[in-house]
Design a protein around this nucleic acid. Structure first.
Length: 1200
RNA sequence: GGGCGGGUAGCUCAACUGGCUAGAGCAAUCGCCUUACACGCGAUAGGUUCCGGGUUCGAAUCCCGGCCUGCCCACCA
């Protein structure tokens, strides 16, 4: 490999251009030139001055948990294609790079490494020490990720690279938290979360996995009771008041009430209901029993209560549709087929503190359930370790229950409950409390990190109120009208037809590509729940709230902070609000404790010190990693104060809203939605800004009731004006899967490092192939193979060597060729594998990338050839007259003056123009595969196969043709630059200096004509002309469109192909010249269009003459449309058998086609109803086919 | 359970709102080191478009039903 040096040319001198494109020699040189030019540094001033329109993409920040894989490579290729093409189109472009701290994921990989390498856990370090260790990991992988991006050719503005936990992002997080908190959109609440009792932290749904376990369905009998108040004057639920008695309900009484089945227990004193549960231990926290209102038993139970055995709590019976009816009571097939119907009893124990559904049921029947003997419907009977505890909200614990259960683990508690229920009876009835146990297999949520069973646990967490209209509704309103389901039909029709070509770059709404994802986005917001934003971790943004237990704010403290006003929101008691401080108190109904708190805006360190001096401590929790991700379009651009840092100066105003977000579909909910909500809210007119705030306080002071306060606050919220969307288009790209259809990801262990592909195939090949694969479908398959590090043998790795959830470790593999051992590189990025000298790391590859490599090589050689011709006769216009040695030159229309272009030149220009239009359309619609396909056809099929072959004899002597050649090559190179930036940049280095005559209709952009201003020089002396990445995007005028040339050349191609077929069939040596005999009509036509010479050249003809009686030796007859042709001098002796076979096949094909056509025309419906144009076409085709068939049969007959 | 994709040549994928004999690349076969490229050139073969109905002059495309496969969301007393 050549040593890259700044002055070294990426492309050697023309005579010594290597035959094959060698990416490893070119890429480092080109990279260095880009880097030094500062070409990718955005200048917001250009946007403000109106000189350029902005175009901005924010990279979806990859997690610093590991290195990038091909999924990232795909997304980054897309973003770079968009960025580079728009840069060339003249937009001021900013592609913002960055990485994500990825909270729990990163903390977990670092913890895992510590455990493995040092046998230590996080608790062996102080928080500061541990965070420093994670920081080291982050630095390492951030560097690696940046290196990968650069190697791929990503034209990011690396001078502005962000990290979600750097200072600029941290400021945005603090500011956003403060505003949202102040405006009542963040609250502290006791909610059910996914609790990991081992790690003792809340985890999100995507940090859990489901696993089926064998368990049981348990049937518990709860005695029915009357629960009355003796003193009628006292309200139920009032603890001090009435004396209440629980009296058993008898079966006889139930029978009187009409309870079906009660007759079966005549004379028995204690009636009961049976609940079915998989979690008997949670019965300690039951606060109700639910029954379906359609259950025939429901009516007769009204007014009755249930007494929890041992616990003694009296709980109400509520009626709710949610309860599944047992199969015997099912009202229709659907209910009957509900798998739960087989297990249901019709009675459901309601445990709102330990089950999500019960919790929801509780909120529906809050008033009734809260009237139980505990006075609250929410009773938490577990501690953070999952053990039964009476310290977390279980106030009415009985002596019996405390003695038996408190202190037991979840598992032991279940056993204990069952053993007790097995020996105790329902009242004195003689029936056991435990009716039955049925075996049951079901899926249970487990924590990804600790593998422990997740406990839905009631804990104090911070929530973001995304259910608020300012969030969820606002996010749906951001959708462009035609993608909203609620939009009127008329409106959407209208916009679809005229709108699509409108200036999308300026649209104020969000548009998904493909459109179907808008639905997913919308449905998410329709069913959204408040977002738990706190995590009990060390790696992340600390929550900027300081608390002190057991106190509210004293008057003296209030005055110390110069705060006088008080008002409330629904969720917390805010005692005062200023521009940088929110003080308040919170009363916890469960524990009766009050907590004073303060939320502090960024940049108020003095306040923090004063609070801490008073004993206030910052909340130890950190924010969910998606909180900072949600602010990405704001934080990276410098919000709230872009001018504070030179890196972000002016960015927010110039580039938000950004142009497009390219991302994967699974984070539409986690990320896209939240960015939209944050951007719209935080860039909108903030509700409680000082002026509005004043008005609010006035309103509040005059209000006397809490309801009035609340409605005032609502009014204020409704005044909030909505900000812009963070991006106008959202492109959802395909997911890269491996050869077995499994999603490619680091954790799945089948990720491929793009650097492996860059090493084996080159960055451009990687990019071209990925671009080609990016269809509108939702998945793409990428079969992965392993390269042996010893012998470079390529083989498919067996599944057992891949890292999976089960193997979880280093997977050794053995090369089937040299039998030596290696560790597969899969998963190296996560630090799970350690290559050694004996067992080096294997790399990966995929044959898919051969296509990209071949394409780049083709371009390289086409350029090499083109440059050879263009350089050979020196610069400038060479006078005509040089000897055109074949008839192609003679036939060309240009007969010396150089004014008229030859057929093939006109054809090439027309094809170029069409291709530019196709590429533009593909980019506009995010059809990347179509972009690649267009360029493949243009370069390979049109330019190389036909154009270059056709001009070989003439180009050297035809200045005008050389001009067309130069313009064609340049257009292709420019069009391809966004996809294959390295090879095109290398070619450009030589191509840019080629001078030719102008070609009318070309506008290759400012680089050819525009004078540079000083500002254009960016950081260096590079002129825009000197780098392709800063050159203009081709614009080809309508005058280049030439249908006649396309038609005429298509005929040339048809004849040439036909002759080649015959030659191949008869095994004619390529060098042998044959003679074509054709009717004068055809020859005249070809001559007139200027195509005859190309036929001769490309079909390997000695000459083309009129059909004559004596056609010479070795003749073969051909049939083209209505013309009979003869090829002579084909071989020394034509094999009659081969020829007959050929003709017969030809005849068969034509006959088949003709019968399809005639059948179609015989159909009266077709002639009557199909568009006349189609019918005419069919008729013409049939006529041609019939003529050919006639000719062929005649020829076949003649042969005997 | 709800929603969304996909099923087309041996493999990976195309085919715009229904309309040329359903197309490419790879692999296969045949012939070529033709003076840009063997990472190449020329040619050949290969498809009952998952199955069954329907609408239509006409269906890979639209509708209904089924099978297979992938993803997202919810649920899992």
């Amino acid at each position: 490999m050549l040593e890259p040096s700044p002055n070294k040319s990426a492309m050697s001198s023309p005579d010594e251009l290597p035959k094959a494109y060698k990416p490893a020699e070119v890429e480092p040189v080109v990279l260095r030139r880009w880097d030094e030019s500062g070409a990718f540094v955005a200048d917001p001033a250009k946007v403000f001055s109106g000189e350029r329109e902005p175009y901005c993409i924010l990279i979806p920040p990859p997690n610093v948990t590991g290195a990038l894989h091909l999924g990232h490579a795909l997304n980054n290729t897309i973003q770079d294609i968009l960025t580079r093409s728009h840069r060339m189109m003249g937009y001021e472009t900013l592609w913002m790079p960055g990485t994500d701290h990825a909270g729990i994921a990163t903390q977990a990989v670092v913890e895992r490494r510590l455990k493995r390498e040092q046998g230590k856990s996080r608790k062996d370090f102080t928080r500061e020490q541990f965070v420093a260790l994670v920081q080291e990991w982050k630095d390492e992988y951030e560097k690696r990720i940046t290196g990968q991006l650069k190697a791929m050719g990503a034209s990011c503005d690396f001078s502005r690279q962000r990290f979600t936990m750097d200072e600029i992002c941290a400021r945005a997080v603090r500011e956003a938290f403060f505003i949202l908190f102040r405006d009542g959109l963040i609250y502290r609440g006791k909610r059910l979360v996914n609790w990991d009792p081992v790690l003792q932290t809340a985890v999100s749904d995507d940090e859990c996995y489901d696993e089926e376990i064998d368990a049981g369905f348990y049937y518990l009998r709860y005695p029915l009771v009357h629960w009355g108040v003796r003193d009628a004057a006292t309200k139920p639920g009032n603890k001090e008041g009435g004396i209440r008695d629980a009296m058993p309900v008898t079966w006889d009484e139930l029978a009187v009430r009409g309870y079906p089945g009660a007759e079966a227990h005549p004379g028995e004193q204690q009636a009961w209901v049976t609940v079915a549960t998989t979690r008997p231990e949670t019965y300690l926290g039951d606060t109700a029993v639910a029954v379906n209102p359609h259950d025939p038993r429901a009516k007769s139970l009204r007014g009755l209560w249930v007494e929890l055995p041992l616990v003694g709590r009296i709980v109400p019976i509520v009626e709710d549709d949610y309860v599944v009816l047992p199969a015997a009571l099912a009202r229709d097939e659907e209910e009957k087929n509900d798998p739960k119907a087989a297990y249901a009893t019709g009675f459901l124990k309601v445990t709102p503190a330990h089950d999500q559904n019960d919790n929801e049921l509780y909120t529906r029947h809050k008033d009734v359930i809260d009237s139980n003997s505990a006075g609250t419907g929410l009773i938490n009977v577990m501690g953070p370790d999952g053990a039964i505890s009476d310290k977390h909200g279980w106030a009415d614990v009985s002596h019996e229950a405390a003695r038996l259960f408190v202190g037991l683990s979840r598992e032991d508690a279940r056993k204990k409950v069952l053993s007790e229920f097995k020996v105790r009876t329902v009242g004195d009835s003689g029936y056991l409390l435990l009716e039955e146990i049925k075996p049951y297999r079901h899926t249970v949520k487990h924590s990804d990190r600790s593998k422990a069973i997740i406990e839905p646990w009631l804990s104090d967490q911070w929530f973001m109120k995304v259910t608020d209209g300012r969030m969820a509704r606002s996010a749906n309103e951001a959708l462009v009208a035609e993608q909203r389901s609620g939009g009127t039909q008329e409106g959407s029709e209208g916009t679809r037809h005229q709108g699509i070509k409108g200036d999308r770059k300026k649209q104020q709404h969000l548009r998904f590509h493909p459109a179907r994802y808008a639905k997913m986005y919308e449905q998410w917001h329709d069913n959204i729940r408040d977002w738990c934003i706190s995590r009990q971790l060390w790696w992340g943004h600390r929550i900027p709230v300081w608390t002190r237990a057991g106190t509210s704010w004293s008057e003296s403290e209030m005055s110390e902070f110069d705060l006088k006003q008080r008002f409330a929101t629904t969720d917390t008691f805010l005692e005062s609000v200023t521009s940088n401080l929110v003080l308040g108190a919170r009363f916890d109904a469960a524990t009766g404790a009050t907590t004073g708190f303060a939320c502090i805006a960024p940049g108020s360190e003095e306040l923090e010190r004063r609070l801490e001096a008073k004993g206030y401590k910052q909340d130890p929790d950190v924010l969910d990693t998606w909180f900072s991700s949600a602010l990405w379009p704001l934080s990276t651009l410098g919000w709230p104060d872009p001018d504070q840092s030179p890196q972000t100066k002016g960015l927010l105003g110039a580039f938000n809203p950004t142009s497009v977000l390219s991302t994967a579909r699974e984070i539409i909910t986690l990320w896209v939605s939240r960015m939209v909500m944050m951007n719209r809210y935080l860039l909108g007119g903030t509700a409680l800004q000082s002026s509005v705030l004043g008005a609010t306080q006035t309103a509040l002071e005059s209000s006397s009731t809490f309801t009035a306060l609340e409605s005032s606050a609502t009014n204020v919220r409704n005044q909030h004006s909505t900000g812009p969307v963070p991006f106008r288009d959202v492109f959802i790209h395909a997911v890269v899967q491996d050869g077995d259809g499994k999603r490619m990801s680091k954790s799945a262990g089948n990720g491929v490092d793009p650097l492996d592909i860059i090493n084996s195939h080159g960055a451009d090949a990687l990019r071209f192939t990925l671009c080609q694969m990016t269809t509108q479908t939702q998945d793409v398959r990428m079969p992965v193979e392993t390269v042996c590090p010893h012998c470079a043998h390529v083989f498919a790795l067996e599944a057992k060597h891949q890292i999976t959830k089960d193997t979880k470790g280093i997977a050794d593999a053995r090369c089937p060729e040299c039998k030596k051992e290696m560790v597969t590189s899969l998963g190296v990025g996560t630090g799970q594998m350690k290559p050694t000298a004996d067992k080096p790391a294997a790399t990966n590859t995929s044959r898919k990338f051969d296509a990209g490599r071949n394409f780049c090589n083709k371009l390289w050689n086409a350029a090499r050839f083109g440059l050879g011709i263009l350089g050979s006769s020196g610069p400038g216009v060479t006078p005509e007259g040089s000897d055109a040695s074949t008839s192609a030159g003679r036939d060309a229309r240009s007969t010396g003056s150089g004014m008229a272009k030859s057929l093939v030149d006109r054809w090439m220009l027309s094809r170029l123009r069409r291709s530019v239009a196709e590429v533009n359309a593909a980019l506009e619609e995010y059809q990347f595969a179509s972009y690649a396909q267009t360029m493949y056809d243009l370069l390979w099929r049109d330019f190389c196969d036909w154009y270059l072959e056709a001009i070989k004899p003439t180009a050297a002597g035809d200045a005008q043709q050389r001009a067309v050649l130069a313009h064609s090559l340049e257009t292709i190179v420019r069009l391809l630059h966004p996809v294959t930036p390295f090879v095109t940049e290398a070619i450009w280095e030589r191509l840019k200096d080629v001078e030719t005559a102008p070609v009318d209709g070309f506008d290759l952009g400012p680089s050819r004509s525009v004078e540079m201003t000083d500002g254009d020089r960016r950081a260096t002396q590079e002129s825009p002309r000197s780098l392709l990445c800063m050159a203009g995007w081709p614009r080809l005028g309508a005058s280049l469109n030439d249908e006649a040339a396309e038609r005429d050349f298509a005929r040339v191609q048809a004849i040439v192909t036909m002759i080649r077929e015959v030659r191949a069939q008869h095994n004619v040596a390529p060098k042998r010249r044959v003679t074509l005999h054709a009717p004068s009509g055809l020859l005249d036509e070809l001559r007139a269009s200027g195509g005859l010479g190309y036929v001769e050249l490309l079909a390997g003809l000695e000459s083309a003459t009129e059909v004559s009686a004596a056609t010479g030796t070795a003749c073969v007859s051909l049939r083209l449309e209505t013309y009979d042709l003869v090829l002579s001098n084909l071989t020394d002796r034509v094999d009659a058998g081969t020829e007959k076979e050929r003709l017969a096949k030809e005849l068969g094909d034509k006959t088949k086609a003709a019968s399809v056509m005639s059948k179609r025309l015989e159909n009266p419906g077709y002639v009557a109803k199909a568009p006349p144009k189609l019918v005419e076409e069919s008729k013409a085709q049939l006529a041609t086919l019939e003529a050919e068939i006639a000719g062929l049969s005649k020829q076949l007959e003649a042969m005997g």
